[in-house]
Simulated scan of single mutants.
Amino acid sequence: MMHKILLIDDDIALTEMLEQYLVTEGFDVTVANDGQTGAQYVLAGQFDLTVLDVMMPKLNGIETLRIIRQASHIPVIMLTAKGDESERVMGLESGADDYVAKPCTPRELLARIRALLRRSKITKDGSQQALQIVIGGLTITPAQRRVEVAGKAINLTSTEFNLLEILAKNAGHVVCKEDLALQAMGRTLVRFDRSVDVHMSSIRQKIGTSSNGSDYIQTVYRMGYQLIRE
């Protein structure tokens, strides 16, 4: 199946180069050179993943992402300035699944795209359709990539769902951040990389607390995270 990728970036030369590269790798690519048009494409079209630049005139990438997240769970990779941690954190907090620092090589971006697509793919095995993970008031249905707390559906990004699913499958046990990044995002952590921490903070805010008032997810200092069994 040919995946449909949307590139949103005002750098015309860069998008032309990335488009040509991704097309040769078997992707169906659409380009938008401003945030407003890009958001309209996402909300109107059937794309599998979006690559979104942070720095754009008029409607920047963060604002565009917030519009997209109001109505779509599409996986999003942010293009951020190299070394600008504030951009990366802001992008992740706004709902991005991953980020790539510019300037980046097409090969690096391709690897991130493939990893995110692979981890956001919905399982179509009929034998797993009814499989659920239930921990207290938290219910996770992997085949549908659905999360409910006390019967209420919770909207998670693709990477957030992956992280929560990994913790749920290992409930009661600590999972180190390096393993979480590798399994949920398809990459290793680099020094000072806070991606997992930012995603975990967002998940906590969305799923709230258990029936006894404690957090579902516990931070284990210098080790990682674990989902607490009630």
Score class of each variant (00 low, 15 high):
L138R: 04
L138Q: 01
L138T: 02
L138Y: 01
T139F: 02
T139L: 13
T139Y: 05
I140F: 05
T141P: 06
T141Y: 08
P142V: 09
A143Q: 09
Q144E: 13
Q144I: 11
Q144M: 14
R145N: 09
R145C: 07
R145G: 08
R145I: 10
R146H: 15
R146N: 12
R146Y: 15
R146A: 13
V147N: 02
E148K: 14
E148C: 13
E148I: 10
V149N: 03
V149Y: 04
A150T: 13
A150M: 13
G151K: 04
G151N: 02
G151W: 07
K152N: 15
K152S: 12
A153D: 12
I154M: 03
I154H: 00
N155A: 15
N155I: 13
N155M: 14
N155Y: 12
N155E: 15
L156E: 05
L156P: 03
L156D: 03
T157E: 06
T157V: 01
T157Y: 04
S158E: 12
S158K: 12
T159N: 02
T159Y: 00
E160W: 00
E160R: 01
E160H: 04
F161V: 08
F161Q: 01
N162K: 03
N162R: 01
N162L: 01
N162G: 03
L163D: 09
L164A: 09
L164F: 08
L164S: 09
L164I: 05
L164H: 05
L164T: 07
E165T: 11
E165V: 12
I166W: 10
I166F: 11
I166P: 10
A168G: 05
A168H: 00
A168P: 03
